[in-house]
Design a protein around this nucleic acid. Structure first.
Length: 269
DNA sequence: ATGACAACCTGTGGGC
DNA sequence: TGCCCACAGGTTGTCA
């Protein structure tokens, strides 16, 4: 489900509600996520106080005075703040009960998300991650340099977390459209100047989506339960067969790496 | 190293 | 109406 803007929206939404709160109790109703939720999570977390809420790639890093809770939302995960006595719904797998009558509740029908406990800010899943797309060190030169000699389609290249993190299927489609680059073009055959444009469109589309509270297609909700409003600004994703907003040509859909790609065959070369 | 693909899991929508 | 298949915002692991 969530790409970087949705994770960032969640991060900002829950932060004010959990900062300086202490975990009173932990309920794990379903431990079978992408990786098993540690059986000791409750023991470790009860009594811990949240000190900072950060994000790295699509991982949420909830820092406590004892260690760090690392959460990934997978395809269908969401985190919400609600009164502890709210009856859990189907697929509400985990509650972190706070000391103010609220809880942080994790909902995830497909169970592709994960909970990890870190003693230090160090984990194999965080190794080898590419730069943050909104950081200055991520630029066209970086993509250009990393793409030389590669035949992989540029769409799949920008979705590779070792190149740049956080760009999922929706925003990869949108950024390529904005940059006028054909998604099937080999990554190694995109010129530096075009990568400079692409780096900028990635930053723009992610930044705009964060401002809109993310994209809600089906079920994404932020920390307060409200949806994101970026879906209405999508130019290509989900608009196959509809007219290009720039040239009115019919948008085309193809499959790349098992994922849907939508683009304008006229504007994108 | 690279790239292709299966795997993890549930829900939904379209076609018949 | 009901059934079956394809597909959905992600990522890891395996294999050639």
């Amino acid at each position: 489900m969530p790409e970087l803007p949705e994770v960032e929206t969640t991060c900002r939404g829950i932060a004010p509600h959990i900062l300086n709160r202490t975990v009173q109790d932990v309920h794990v109703r379903e431990a079978r996520l992408r990786w098993p939720v540690p059986a000791t999570l409750g023991h470790t977390l009860v009594g811990a106080r949240f000190k900072a809420v950060n994000r790295r790639a699509k991982y949420l890093l909830l820092e406590t005075d004892r260690g760090i809770l690392m959460i990934h939302l997978g395809m269908s995960g969401s985190l919400r703040i609600m009164p502890t006595d709210t009856p859990p719904l189907f697929h509400d797998h985990i509650d972190l009960v706070l000391d103010d009558g609220n809880c942080l509740r994790y909902h995830d029908p497909r169970r592709f998300g994960s909970f990890h406990w870190l003693e230090q800010l160090e984990h194999s899943l965080l190794d080898h991650l590419g730069p943050e797309p909104l950081a200055d060190i991520f630029d066209g030169a970086h993509m250009y340099q990393r793409s030389r000699g590669r035949r992989i389609p540029v769409k799949q290249f920008v979705m590779d977390g070792k190149i740049v993190v956080g760009v999922g299927n929706i925003y990869a489609n949108e950024a390529l459209f904005m940059a006028g680059i054909h998604p099937a073009r080999a990554a190694g055959r995109v010129a530096l100047a075009r990568y400079e444009v692409l780096a900028q469109t990635i930053k723009t589309v992610l930044g705009d989506a964060i401002q809109q509270g993310g994209t809600t297609l089906r079920d994404f909700v932020g920390g307060d339960g409200s949806p994101g409003y970026f879906a209405q600004q999508l130019s290509v994703y989900g608009r196959q067969g509809h007219p290009c907003k720039a040239c009115k040509s019919a948008l085309k859909e193809i499959r790349q790496g098992g994922r849907s790609t939508v683009f304008c065959p006229s504007c994108q070369r």
